[in-house]
Simulated assay, not measured.
Amino acid sequence: MTDTRNRDTSDTTRRKFLKTTALGAAAGIAAPHVRNAVAAETIVWKVQTSWPAGVGLQTFKDWCGTIKEKTGGELEFRPFAAKELVGDFELLDGVKNGVLEAMNSFTLYWVGKMPAAAFLSSYTLGLRHPHEWDMFFYAKGGLQAAREIFAKQGLHYVNRIHHGANIIHSKRPIRSFEDFKDLKLRVPGGMIAETFAAAGAKTTLLPGGEVFSALEKGTIDAADYTGPAVNWDLGFQQVTKYISMGPEGLMSIYQPVDLMDLVVNMNVWNKLPDKLKRFVDDEVQVYSNIHFGAIQKADMETWPKFEKAGTEVNRLEPEDLEKFQRVAVPIWFKWANKDKDAARLFQKQLEIMENPSVGYVTPDMYQGMKVDL
């Protein structure tokens, strides 16, 4: 008698194997479609920067190019240079209105819409080093305050991004406080513009991408813009002969830390899964470090190029600092009292500047002035 039990078991096993193999093959064939489906679910943000060229723009684009891989395809940043989708000074509205999901801008650009933005980046003889700004953001509640202020505009302020000091390129030498008198000077607006106006300059506001042509045409005599590397790439050495900076040890008296930021449309931010919100929070810190380091490296390597091109570098004297301080302090308080948001930001910074850890300010410097909280 033939035992059919083993044969039946063997047949059943074989049928299961063939069925499994067929399903496996089918899954293998379908795998590309599964990956495409995942890719189709990628959250894509259009992010425009204020950088028009140079190391700033390239560093921004390189960083954006890492986001999709870092998130396993869940989030992608598509980078755009200054003015590619909207004008530089229209960035904030572009993000609010959904033309862009996010922006990487110079925070100071928005003082016309938010006076408090004047205290979210450098101003004349205020906080002077990156670590002092981090004291404000992370030890004095500045980050939370910034987020609350931008939220009123329908925007989420993710975090600050460190940049570096700004310098002034000029057609004539600027060696003292008095040399600013009647100088047609491009500045970013706000307190900085008012301080130079108080020193006698005729100030104007222009986006970075328009500075070269204004210098070339003689519409302006001089321009503040970023640091030497980006300014070299923009060709400022072709249309100016002089660079002006602060005294030794202080590259810029008016924007020693020209902060940028990453700001996202609030609805876009709220739709982001919590794990991606945490990722973006952390990643902006990573980018800030990369950005700051790339800018500093490029700046240090660019100074010999200006020297070879015949550009003359002039520095203000310590006594010029005192003259600027006298005109700057009343402007601090004027801007602080424009609204309650500006007041609370400045109060935090004033406490840092008065603290012995920093020590820039003493009460006698603002006698008779107060912050209206």
Results as ranks from 00 to 15, higher is better:
15 R>H: 05
290 I>M: 14
41 E>A: 14
155 L>A: 05
19 K>A: 11
228 P>L: 04
194 E>L: 02
90 E>T: 04
305 K>L: 13
31 A>T: 14
295 I>L: 13
70 K>Q: 14
224 D>E: 14
37 A>K: 09
276 L>W: 13
129 H>N: 08
85 L>I: 15
38 V>Q: 14
177 F>Y: 15
203 T>A: 09
249 G>K: 06
69 E>A: 11
275 K>L: 00
144 Q>R: 06
351 E>R: 02
42 T>C: 05
346 F>K: 14
266 M>N: 07
111 V>D: 13
115 P>Q: 08
38 V>W: 10
41 E>I: 02
279 F>S: 00
197 A>G: 03
322 E>H: 05
318 P>Q: 07
44 V>Y: 02
363 P>F: 07
336 A>N: 02
268 V>C: 04
85 L>H: 11
145 A>L: 15
138 Y>H: 02
163 H>T: 11
128 R>Q: 12
145 A>Y: 03
124 T>K: 06
318 P>F: 13
233 D>P: 00
367 Q>E: 14
23 L>S: 03
162 H>L: 09
251 M>S: 10
101 E>H: 10
369 M>G: 03
331 I>N: 11
154 G>I: 12
160 R>I: 05
116 A>S: 15
249 G>N: 05
56 G>D: 04
171 K>M: 07
354 E>V: 10
346 F>Y: 09
100 L>E: 06
87 G>V: 01
65 G>E: 08
299 D>R: 11
256 P>M: 09
178 E>Q: 15
259 L>T: 08
263 V>D: 00
96 K>S: 07
193 A>D: 12
13 T>M: 12
29 I>H: 07
205 L>W: 09
158 V>P: 08
227 G>L: 13
326 R>V: 04
301 E>C: 10
240 T>F: 09
353 M>V: 12
238 Q>P: 01
317 E>P: 01
205 L>I: 15
360 Y>F: 15
68 K>G: 01
198 A>Q: 06
91 L>D: 09
64 C>S: 12
122 S>G: 10
151 A>F: 00
343 A>D: 06
99 V>M: 02
178 E>W: 11
283 E>C: 01
99 V>Y: 01
363 P>K: 03
196 F>T: 13
26 A>G: 14
156 H>C: 00
221 D>R: 04
361 V>S: 08
29 I>C: 10
346 F>V: 02
101 E>L: 04
336 A>C: 09
183 L>E: 13
288 S>Q: 08
282 D>E: 15
303 W>Y: 14
153 Q>R: 09
266 M>R: 10
321 L>G: 01
361 V>F: 14
371 V>I: 13
228 P>W: 00
128 R>L: 05
132 E>V: 11
165 A>C: 04
